[in-house]
Design a protein around this nucleic acid. Sequence first.
DNA 1: CTTAATTCCTATTGGATTACTATTATATCA
DNA 2: TGATATAATAGTAATCCAATAGGAATTAAG
Lengths: 155, 155
Amino acid sequence: MKFSARFEYALQALLYLKCEPDEAPVSGREMSEKLNLPYRFLEQILSDLKKRGVLRSIRGQHGGYKLNLEPEEISIFDIYEVTDGKFEPWDCSTAESGDRCGQNHNMCVVNIFYSDFKSTFKSLMKSYTLDKLCSAAMKLKTEAVNNKITHAPSS
Amino acid sequence: MKFSARFEYALQALLYLKCEPDEAPVSGREMSEKLNLPYRFLEQILSDLKKRGVLRSIRGQHGGYKLNLEPEEISIFDIYEVTDGKFEPWDCSTAESGDRCGQNHNMCVVNIFYSDFKSTFKSLMKSYTLDKLCSAAMKLKTEAVNNKITHAPSS
DNA sequence: CTTAATTCCTATTGGATTACTATTATATCA
DNA sequence: TGATATAATAGTAATCCAATAGGAATTAAG
């Protein structure tokens, strides 16, 4: 029950693009250095995000990546699906997967809990957009700055 | 982002104990056969549940396991913690784990989402007790039976 | 006292997945 | 043409998970 590194890295990269927007596209190299993430691995993830239409890319010198959707259109759930595939936290959670536990899918007690779990998390993840997260981040930052000023040692 | 087999098996075993209660303790062997779970692996899980006080065990012939708590005292979250340990879906989710992402723990944007995710997860899982799940299971069963009677072919 | 049935303890294997690396190809701009 | 990018794919190393294995301790029944 852990989020994958792929997911975490994707999230960081996208936030980097949104929170520090730039006219020019941002290269994978730059992001890997600024965020301290393994370069080639990050490239794979960025490539996946591109294939799914979250990013668009410009090749060649001065190339890089840009957001392809509005930040309020990109939810954490979308990102999750790109990096980790379908959200199926349970093996026998789909009717097709057979009845290892000997019970019919709809009869399986465990699936009572599971379907609730699944829908709760979907909606939670969908409620977080890149936009919202970035605003929250900005707020954190200014609060930190104000704190520093307020509590600055008067030496 | 998947539940482990340990967790799933534990859930099934506990439901078996609750839903088909018996004066006599139930052996690991019986549960593994009835639920079609690998015997020795299940024993390990049952042993963990015992160590954490969810089950109590009787050794020797005619021994086995019994619930050590009231079914309404056992939540899915408790079971999760026994089988999977602390719920930390994020690597830098604890302040101690350092700042791989270069940000202070409280400043990390990702942790904004994370802490919300974590608390939602906890409260959802705590809201499901063994008791509730078993009632739900019983309800499913009787519904299925009624359905069969109602729709029985009148041959 | 012996035997069978059970929990208990610990070690290890096999397989799958994950995180990451490497290679090569292709595109773009100066 | 050369430097800097992305693109696509193959490979690897490490880790984790599920399951297996062997045997010790315990208990009840015969």
